[in-house]
Nucleic acid binder design. Sequence first.
DNA 1: CGGTGGCATTGGTCAGACCAATTACCCCTT
DNA 2: AAGGGGTAATTGGTCTGACCAATGCCACCG
Lengths: 172, 172
Amino acid sequence: MEKKRNAFEANIAAIKLMIEQDGLVPGDRIPSERELAERLSISRPSVREALRTLAYLGIVETRHGGGSFLLNRDDHTYIQIIAQFLVTGDSKFEDLAGTLRLLEQAALTQLDDLSVLAPVVSSDAAFRETLIQTVDNDLFERIWRQVNAFHKSFGQGELYTQAEREQLLNRP
Amino acid sequence: MEKKRNAFEANIAAIKLMIEQDGLVPGDRIPSERELAERLSISRPSVREALRTLAYLGIVETRHGGGSFLLNRDDHTYIQIIAQFLVTGDSKFEDLAGTLRLLEQAALTQLDDLSVLAPVVSSDAAFRETLIQTVDNDLFERIWRQVNAFHKSFGQGELYTQAEREQLLNRP
DNA sequence: CGGTGGCATTGGTCAGACCAATTACCCCTT
DNA sequence: AAGGGGTAATTGGTCTGACCAATGCCACCG
């Protein structure tokens, strides 16, 4: 019952919970701001503060006069938006590349048949995409995809050179 | 110039620009909501919608009665936000355990000196915690921590048996 | 039957008010 | 003069109500 402390975040959680309980799926329209305010017993400005944050994170989309809609999880743009604030993020950029290498290294140790990678060894993106999909773990794949999107938002090129990719296929 | 399209995002950009132009550094106090509204020629509710989003992303912190302060970028709570959305909803439980194993497998391949793990081989939690820390990658560690927390919330016990942990130390 | 204009709905923005927490400041005591 | 305490000003938190702007629905008209 820690009520008073985080009313704002509680409102965000309440809206997300309501979306869940109403069984809304991506593309569905969510209740109007006025209806949300009434159902949650909060004011419309409070609803809006939560809704704008969700919209900024790319979880919902609002159309003037039309309503608010639940977006696909893959449409989330918050990573690019957050990256906008990381003007001095060079030190953390190494974390991104390092994490990607770790994730892909893990996938590689799981892989028995390396032949599936041979056709895509010439493309960095396709090579890594294929590698991750061999794991067949939805959560793992989502994590990789988000980190990769974050990494790409910094405008970097290939993660491995062609020679590195070929070497990875011969090692294990 | 700028279109009417995205007044909200324009407000966020304007606040960010003002922070830059005022030469504010992490820890500094930013102008009050009322002053921001006046300087940007927008209403206080509009200022609040932008500020609340920045606060949710961990870029600023607001203290009731005290003001709003610029946070250190190294806090990067945005990673927590990203992780929070990665590990919500329909993640299958077996994906959680599988992802943890993958992450720890990746850490293991990076580790040269296995002796640091010997003292903690008797404890599943300590073993895995120590293993992750050897990577020295903040983003990687946070991702692991979030997945592990979610896994624990399902009330599961040890991820590896004692025999499995000892085997991991002898393999490479 | 199709187009179209009006009206209800919904998001966008604003002004003002009041409460709650914090901070600043002045005055009194020592 | 220095320190402490209490009060007023400042600031964020929330709400009410209002009006504008964009959209969508639907009855009406051609």
